[in-house]
Design a protein around this nucleic acid. Structure first.
Length: 482
RNA sequence: UCCUCGGUAGCUCAGUUGGUUAGAGCACAUGACUGUUAAUCAUGGGGUCGUAGGUUCAAGCCCUACCCGGGGAGCCA
């Protein structure tokens, strides 16, 4: 008999036929009820075994975590927890899982709640929990929806390089990659490591952004996006940073900052709506999980909306759009500023906004996602288009409640002279980026794009609170076990 | 990297001003149970108190260093 996904069995098959499923035992109750999950859905199937007519040696091996294949008749359940169940005619233990804690190599997942911190230490097995299987099914759905969103709008996916020789992107510390002997590298006359001897004939790193390359493609294909891993060697130890994370970077020619904001807002809303439409079971589980977590918090720290309410709220409300200068004004007139409750004072135009300021705007003042635009040029990257005021650039950051910056983008400086001037002012080696500057010499056009942090989006969609729990094998400082 | 809280049974935690034999719930093992829902009931086993030093008659508790984890900050997506 052909085995069947439990998801298909639960949604498409009527009782009265024989079925075969394969999965892992979640619980075994009363010597009689086996809950089997195959990961195709959050739901498990209950297999009922006639223990009086089953070999006791087999019964003993039905333990939490064991892999089994069962065949039997699908029938309506007499119990209340499920519609249908399988009355087992044949069971095979494919892989045992030791449950006796006095023996070595015991299956570490118990039929009870575990802390996320503990599960992180057994990341190779945490896929087998409801929480993580739900998270990674949603991560897949969001990956698929991301490609669908852009494909449906005529965008082309560009695979920008992961290995890059330019270290001029200014997006953070880079990981050096080399094949030189670390003990005895070749040296030049100055005693420095001689990278002309290295694999690429020059120093090379892992990419921190595909943006500059995406711009090259956009200035021919008009609408492109990247979706791939990026790497930052920053010693950041927070719930929102990874050394290896995935980023989506659309880039659109003949577009300005308003087009860019429209696209980003549509992008985020589309993905959240896609999750609501296609991941309802997993979201219902995570919604309940988040509610249970909230019970352990103090009243004032609990969120006003549940996870699903939050998702619906974001798709059905416009994001607030305001300039950096307007935001500074609001912050200076705010209650915490007057009462000196901010740890960092808002001194006026030019001060970089701290997390506490962003959180105030999003969570207290507007209570919805906020797009901040037109930041002072001094605190933004060299490639952002300068405004006529000579002070600000056409930058935008999208801030989400509970997460902070989820998108960062800008209209790009398309004017050769202005771009070169900014590069010189900010000590960006123009020589190395000759290819980037070339696009401003030949048929340059206004264009814009942004970077969307995939794991941060997943935090919002799943209600998880640490990016280490939405990345299957997170890389963080001092941690790359799996 | 900085601030802060923590590390005690397989997991989650309690452990009083330093003082006798370090506790609980769950998990696990054994037994009972033919409709359970993270089953229930009974019984039982299980500890290098993060590591290394130190103070003391006496340290899970005090001191020092280091390691690991959480939360916050910086940097950013």
């Amino acid at each position: 008999m052909e085995k069947m996904d439990i998801k298909k069995l639960l949604t498409e098959i009527k009782p009265g036929v024989d079925v075969k499923v394969a999965g892992w035992v979640r619980t075994f109750r009363s010597n009689r009820f086996i809950n089997i999950n195959d990961g195709s859905t959050i739901h498990s199937i209950q297999a009922v075994i006639d223990f009086e007519n089953t070999d006791p040696e087999i019964l003993k091996r039905i333990t939490t975590g064991a892999a089994v294949i069962v065949e039997g008749g699908l029938v309506e359940s007499q119990g209340r927890g499920q519609q249908v169940e399988i009355h087992v005619k044949k069971i095979e233990i494919v892989g045992d899982a030791e449950s006796d804690i006095t023996k070595p190599d015991v299956y570490p997942l118990q039929p009870k709640a575990h802390s996320l911190e503990y599960l992180r230490e057994i990341a190779h097995l945490r896929f087998r929990t409801n929480t993580f299987s739900a998270v990674f099914r949603i991560r897949h759905a969001m990956t698929f929806a991301m490609h669908k969103f852009f494909n449906d709008r005529g965008f082309f996916n560009i695979h920008t390089p992961i290995i890059t020789a330019s270290d001029a992107e200014g997006a953070g510390e880079m990981f050096r990659i080399t094949t030189l002997d670390p003990i005895n590298p070749p040296k030049n006359e100055k005693g420095e490591v001689d990278y002309t001897e290295d694999f690429f004939g020059r120093a090379a790193n892992l990419t921190v952004s595909g943006q500059l390359e995406a711009e090259l493609a956009a200035l021919a294909l008009s609408k492109v996006y990247t979706f791939g891993p990026t790497f930052r060697a920053e010693n950041s130890n927070t719930a929102r940073h990874l050394a290896e994370f995935w980023m989506i970077e659309p880039e659109v020619a003949f577009a300005d900052l308003n087009d860019n904001m429209d696209l980003a807002e549509a992008n985020l809303k589309y993905l959240i709506q896609y999750a609501l439409d296609n991941c309802a079971d997993d979201l219902a589980f995570l919604n309940q999980r988040a509610l249970d977590e909230e019970k352990n918090k103090k009243k004032e720290e609990r969120s006003e909306m549940s996870l699903v309410e939050r998702l619906n709220f974001v798709v059905s409300n416009d994001f607030v759009r305001l300039t950096y200068t307007e935001a500074i004004d609001i912050l200076q007139k705010s209650k915490p500023a007057k009462e000196k409750k901010f740890q960092y004072e808002v001194k006026g135009f030019g001060t970089d906004l701290q997390s506490e300021h962003e959180r105030y705007l999003v969570e207290k003042h507007f209570k919805k996602p906020v797009i901040l635009t037109d930041y002072p040029k001094e605190i933004k990257a060299f490639y952002m288009r300068q405004n006529e005021d000579g002070k600000t650039v056409r930058a935008m950051d999208i801030l989400f409640p509970g997460i902070g910056e989820i998108v960062g983008g800008s209209q790009r400086e398309e004017r050769y002279d202005q771009l070169l001037q900014r590069m010189n002012e900010m000590h960006i080696p123009a020589k190395e980026l000759w290819w980037y500057l070339d696009t401003r010499k030949f048929g340059t056009v206004p264009h814009a794009g942004y970077g969307l942090g995939f794991e941060r989006l997943l935090l919002f969609v799943t209600g998880m609170t640490n990016v280490r729990d939405v990345s299957a094998f997170p890389r963080t400082p001092k941690s790359a076990e799996f």
